[in-house]
């Protein structure tokens, strides 16, 4: 069996030289702000579950936050359909933070009234659609929304495991056949729970997508690169972006099997520092952590008082 996880699993896959440096500083800092908020949020969720404050299943995206941040920079105004590991997607696309905190705390004011925990988080009024917990199930739903003619593009995000679901593959084919306004984004962390891609399949999603007649790129999770391709492909939909990224914690819960193959978050901070934005990025990181902390404290107080 060939190994689709090698040699493409590198932090430089598809790199475009000078992309970050060519971006306006304000845009780069906003990109990092979204990453910092998502990371601070999921790290807080992890602590909150370990402390017993959060009692639902949680799917943490620490390590993968660059994907949602980059995507959101190029696809604002879209319908967004992610899946269970979706906190970063929700926050990066402007989902209201208090609603997702309340959801994880099981409060009636949660975006699902406490019904679902992590997977079904949504902010429908802002275009973020809920997921029912079955991996990849959001992809045909997203294709149906793209068929619906809402005059709004659709972005759907799924993992490399979900990409193998029959209904995901046929969704790609249907979108290609009908030239639907939809961007498929695979957060490819090379793991289905803990089974690596090489033990599951030989094919690569981007190649399959091209076979269906769609434009597709296979890149690493450099957020400037993700934003670049998102912006470019939103004018040429349907299209696929397969993003190689690293999950730091277990599929579900708070455990860890050690650091990922690369640490994109630290790489982005280093890049910002090299671009002369070190002080600003540290301030953003600090403010993100303080904001997340303050909102959790506020929501916990409301829960205690109710």
């Amino acid at each position: 069996m060939s190994d689709p996880s090698s040699p493409d699993r590198t932090p430089d896959l598809g790199a475009i030289a000078g992309l970050a440096e060519a971006e306006a500083a304000s845009q780069s800092l906003e990109l990092f702000r979204r990453m910092a908020v998502a990371r601070a949020f999921d790290e807080h969720v992890r602590r909150a579950q370990m402390a017993g404050e959060v009692r639902t299943l949680v799917y943490l995206g620490v390590g993968q936050e660059a994907v949602a941040a980059g995507l959101s920079m190029g696809a604002e105004g879209s319908w967004v359909l992610g899946q269970h590991r979706g906190h970063a997607l929700y926050l990066s696309f402007g989902g209201r933070i208090e609603r997702v905190i309340d959801e994880l705390l099981g409060m009636p004011s949660g975006c699902c009234g406490g019904m679902g925990g992590s997977p079904p988080i949504h902010d429908f009024e802002r275009g973020i659609v809920g997921h029912n917990g079955l991996i990849g199930d959001q992809v045909p739903v997203a294709v149906g929304m793209a068929m619906g003619g809402t005059n709004r593009p659709v972005v759907t995000v799924f993992g490399d495991g979900a990409a193998e679901e029959d209904y995901v593959l046929t969704s790609l084919g249907t979108a290609a056949s009908r030239r639907l306004p939809i961007l498929f984004v695979c957060e490819d962390n090379d793991l289905s729970v803990l089974t690596p891609t090489r033990d599951r399949r030989t094919w690569k999603l981007a190649e399959v997508a091209r076979g269906f007649g769609m434009e597709a790129v296979d890149i690493a999770d450099d957020p400037w690169l993700v934003a670049h391709w998102t912006t470019a492909l939103m004018d040429r939909l349907p299209a696929v972006i397969n993003v190689r990224t690293c999950r730091e914690y277990w599929h579900v819960g708070t455990g860890s099997d050690g650091p990922g193959e690369w640490n994109r978050y630290e790489m982005v901070k280093s890049r910002l520092a090299a671009m002369g934005l070190g002080d600003e990025s540290r301030r953003i990181e600090r403010e993100a952590a303080q904001m997340v902390e303050a909102r959790w404290t506020e929501r916990l107080q409301i829960r205690s008082a109710s």
């Binding site: 045909p140 739903v141 294709v143 149906g144």
Partner: peptide
């Protein structure tokens, strides 16, 4: 699933 998406799109 496509039909579900069409429902969410208001059709």
């Amino acid at each position: 699933g496509f039909a579900v998406g069409l429902a969410l799109a208001g059709r």
